[in-house]
Amino acid sequence: MTFANWLAHFQRNPALHRELESQIEWDAPVLLSEREVKAFARSFQRFELGESGDGRRLLAKAAQEGDATYLAALELLVHEEQKHSELFRRGLERINAPTLDAHWSDAAFTVLRRILGLRTELGLFLIAETVAMGYFTALAEHAPDPVLRGIGRRIATDEQDHIRFQIDRLRQGFHYTPGAVRLVVGLIWGVIAAGAATVMALDHGQALRACGLSPAKFWLQATGRFQGAAKLIFAAPKAESLGPLTTNA
């Protein structure tokens, strides 16, 4: 498996980003109740903080793998995540809410992934992205404000491919791993995913409800989405690349 197609995809993405962001009516009136403003402020603050990392440790681990094409693609993915942080920041500015300097969930996630190897760190990122994808989709489709819907569409478009990119790399990473070991790792990651979905359902529950999605339904969808991703990794590690889903040629 090579990552040339992914590198080309990420190199073309800025044009798509500009197109999607140009469609957002940034100056449209805010159509949120006071309760909804508080809900999205709490939610966006946590996402803005979580997406703001520079990825230096992750990239340093990836550099040790010796695949320059994969490393270049990963660098562009990290940059896209930083752009997501900027979009959440713009969302906070729209509703006159401040950013956070720290939050326990972000700190715990950061400490955990820093002590692990590349493959496990990518697994944690995959868990975070598959769990959050349902939130981004609900935001894109049902947020009660046009700008928040635009932010959701912009981020969800990236994240659907980020998940596929992580699956491709993890397939490569588990290519020679015995089936029994893959099973154990998959079970452990499944427990972590269930915990992450629980934390998110509780922490972002009000914003989810504002988008018409109950926390319980979100949890079921999030865990199911991770299970689907895990099956692609652990049941078919020798499969060909999924490749990008978004057409940005």
Rank of each mutant, 00 (worst) to 15 (best):
T2E: 10
F3E: 06
W6I: 01
L7C: 09
L7K: 12
A28T: 00
V30Y: 06
L31I: 05
S33N: 07
R35N: 07
F44H: 13
Q45C: 02
R46I: 12
F47Y: 12
E48M: 03
L49T: 05
D54K: 08
D54I: 04
L59S: 11
A60T: 14
A62Y: 04
Q64P: 04
T69A: 10
Y70F: 15
Y70M: 05
A73K: 11
E75P: 02
L76G: 02
E80G: 11
K83E: 12
E86D: 13
R90N: 06
L92E: 03
D106M: 12
A108S: 05
T110L: 14
T110F: 09
V111K: 11
L112Q: 08
R113E: 13
R114S: 10
L116V: 07
G117R: 02
R119F: 00
R119Y: 03
G123W: 05
G123V: 13
F125T: 09
E129F: 10
T130I: 09
A132V: 15
M133G: 06
G134L: 09
Y135E: 03
Y135R: 14
F136W: 10
L139M: 07
A143F: 11
A143M: 13
D145K: 06
V147L: 10
R149T: 01
R149W: 01
I151T: 00
I151W: 05
G152W: 07
R153K: 14
I155A: 01
A156D: 07
D158T: 00
D161K: 01
I163E: 02
I163Q: 05
R164N: 03
F165V: 03
L170E: 01
Q172T: 06
H175M: 13
Y176H: 15
G179N: 10
W189A: 15
W189C: 06
A194I: 02
A196S: 09
T198A: 11
A201M: 12
H204A: 15
H204G: 11
Q206E: 15
A207S: 11
C211W: 12
L213C: 00
P215C: 00
A216M: 13
A222Q: 07
T223A: 08
A229I: 04
K231F: 13
A235Y: 07
A235T: 08
A235C: 09
A235M: 09
K238Q: 13
E240Y: 00
E240L: 06
S241L: 14
P244S: 13
